[in-house]
């Protein structure tokens, strides 16, 4: 049981980073970025390129992957989302679906469709309190927690974070307060690129690197964000952990192929019962 809980927390942390990214971009740009799936994939591949093809250590490769993906996110914004800035969210959602497929196919074109893996030494799992814990899981926990603390710090303790919260709460008032929306949008894309990049590497360490790896995360990531309250990045973390644990628990009674269905069911139930998420209240107006 403890083992299942641990596995659930680890898979929840894997969902948490892209969920934070999705939540941040949703708050500031007002549309759900479907391309988050292929951003995960692309981040994993950029790191793989540096790690396996060039031979840099994985940690550095992951950093390069994150930086590369931040650049990709900024360029995508410039080319695709900026011209559509004042469109409704359905248009933007559809555009992000287009971006999803473009990025996934760029990955296939550049690096092929084979299943690959990072250059990491295989180590025997540690035993801890009767559970099996492998090195990858430890890395995932540490990196995810560090990333979450960093995001929390930026959001709650820096001028940039205040500006991000301001734009997501009330863009007009933020403008009047001297906040340049384009600057905040760029920062949010960069941060979500970094998060998705690290998430890609962690997902690849946990399993394999293949062009569909991000696709499998779209549903749980959306479920986590909806559960935590759309546009509430810290809620998304809790949502992600709950999804991870729920998915692991489901394997006790359901074949693992139905894992994804768990996230889907959670989305449906939350939307029916608590449309503003677990922590959401209907927003006070005025």
């Amino acid at each position: 049981m403890l083992q299942i809980l641990l596995n659930g927390v680890v898979s929840g942390l894997l969902v948490a980073l892209p969920a934070i990214a999705l939540s941040l971009t949703y708050g500031v740009l007002n549309f759900p970025n479907f391309a988050i799936g292929s951003m995960i994939t692309m981040g994993a591949y950029i790191a793989l390129f540096f790690n396996v093809d060039i031979g840099v250590p994985l940690l550095l490769a992951a950093g390069l992957g994150a930086a590369g993906l931040a650049t990709v996110a900024l360029v995508t914004d410039r080319l695709v989302y900026k011209p559509l800035r004042n469109s409704d969210h359905v248009t933007l959602l559809v555009a992000s679906m287009g971006v999803y497929f473009v990025l996934e196919n760029v990955v296939r074109f550049l690096w092929g469709s084979d299943i690959r893996g990072y250059d990491i030494a295989v180590a025997r799992p540690h035993r801890w309190m009767g559970m099996r814990v492998n090195n990858e899981q430890i890395t995932i926990v540490i990196v995810a927690l560090l990333a979450m603390v960093a995001v929390w710090f930026i959001l709650m303790r820096t001028p940039l974070g205040r500006a991000m919260r301001a734009v997501s709460d009330n863009p007009d008032l933020a403008g009047v307060r001297g906040i340049n929306r384009n600057y905040v949008i760029a920062a949010v894309w960069a941060i979500s690129g970094v998060l998705a990049g690290f998430a890609g590497v962690l997902v690849g360490m946990d399993g394999v690197v293949d062009p569909l790896m991000g696709w499998n995360y779209i549903l749980p990531v959306f479920a986590a964000v909806i559960l935590g309250g759309i546009g509430n990045p810290l809620g998304a973390v809790v949502g992600a952990l709950l999804i991870g644990v729920a998915e692991e628990l489901s394997t006790l009674i359901l074949p693992t192929t139905y894992r994804q269905a768990v996230a889907f069911l959670i989305i449906v139930f939350v939307l029916l019962l608590r449309p503003h998420g677990l922590f959401g209240k209907a927003r006070i107006s005025r």
Binding site: P159, R162, A166, D169, N170, D172, L173, R177, I179, R286
Partner: peptide, 22 residues
């Protein structure tokens, strides 16, 4: 503004800091 003239999810102190720093 006539309406929606403070950031409701921020404290009074944060609202004041934000109004100044940018």
């Amino acid at each position: 503004p006539q309406e929606h003239n403070v950031f409701r999810n921020m404290s009074i102190g944060e609202n004041m800091t934000l109004a100044y720093e940018f």
